[in-house]
Nucleic acid binder design. Structure first.
Lengths: 182, 182
DNA sequence: CTGACCGGTTCAGTCATTGAACTCGTCCAC
DNA sequence: GTGGACGAGTTCAATGACTGAACCGGTCAG
């Protein structure tokens, strides 16, 4: 139940990966985490995912050490990516590329660039200015030419993640200021 | 029904990709296609997927132009990757890398190399000998140090794809020789 | 004390998945 | 041309997962 019933393919790393992140919704949760979403309610409203399902997914992601769960004891909880979770970035990036290539005639929906020098990222995640594989916290996201602004976006969380920002930077949270942010 | 109920996220290429390839089993089917599996029965036995589900998945993959369906009129059918399907390779590669990194203490389960010069592929799919991003048909797969040979593999299809080979090379098929193979 | 906010649970209805058995057409050997 | 083997699906009952909406309990500000 925590993981999907096994794919029974001991010798395939792909199957092993899918057991952890291959369920419906899971990748969307991880994507939101890259975009700086950290709170239960923010995931729920931004994704429109049933809360019961979200509970289950977050639980198994924490159990698999993809996310950590910080409970401040005052009723607020923060989920954030671990190193293992951040290592999922190439997969997320590749999925976004494929979607942009084949389903975004008007151009990419979000551009990724190197925050340090503004260079655009190529398909392999390399900065076209300085040639480096850009570390996740240095990646800047902003709406690209294929972005559809007529999309009726009501919730403040969606607004926040559609604003130019660096990955992993937390979306503004009314409460819980926390000192340990970069 | 053909696609999973929409993620209702018009502005995310990742969501769009997942609507096509994000369902349970779909990535495993695509992986097998890269390994040269082409026939309905071979997918079914190799993956242990219920045949009814396989039917549905193949149908939507064909509909989305990820696979083509060749019916020779003599009762044999071949599914094979289109260019759009082959473009999924970076995703498949990234998923395998992540699985190998975090769930394969004994080493990678399958090594990927450049068939031309034997150079190993790095995380970005580049040949470490000649520095080129290796095109899919030139990629050679073979069991790596993390491969578990004690795995009871009975069916000939699994045996075939665990033998050193190039991607997309069809697994031996008793019938349907076809002339247009490389 | 009260009302707003937050994380999370409960529950009935619906939908997808499973696994096993079955259909139907082609081919091959006799 | 008939029987058997094979291949690609279909059918169906049982089970499991997902959905959506309502609900619960704790914390905090006024």
């Amino acid at each position: 139940m925590p993981l999907p019933s096994t794919y029974a393919d001991r010798n395939c790393s792909l199957a092993r990966s899918l057991e952890v992140v291959g369920e419906r919704w899971t990748f969307l949760i991880v994507r939101d985490a890259f975009y700086g979403v950290r709170r239960f309610g923010d995931f729920a409203t931004q994704l429109g995912i049933p809360r019961a399902v979200l509970t289950g997914r977050l639980k198994s992601l924490v159990q698999e050490d993809v996310l950590t769960r910080d409970d401040d004891g005052a009723g607020t909880v923060e989920y954030r990516l671990t190193a293992k979770g951040i290592a999922l970035w190439p997969i997320v990036h590749a999925l976004m590329n494929w979607g942009d290539t084949f389903y975004s005639p008007a151009g990419v929906k979000r551009t990724l660039s190197h925050d340090q020098d503004g260079g655009l990222l190529d398909q392999e995640g390399r900065c076209q200015e300085c040639g480096v594989v850009v570390p996740v916290p240095e990646i800047r996201v902003e709406p690209g030419p294929g972005f559809d602004p007529t999309d009726p976006v009501h919730d403040p969380v969606s607004k926040a993640i559609n604003t130019p920002r660096r990955l992993l930077e937390p979306v503004m949270t009314p409460r819980i200021p926390r000192a340990d942010e970069s």
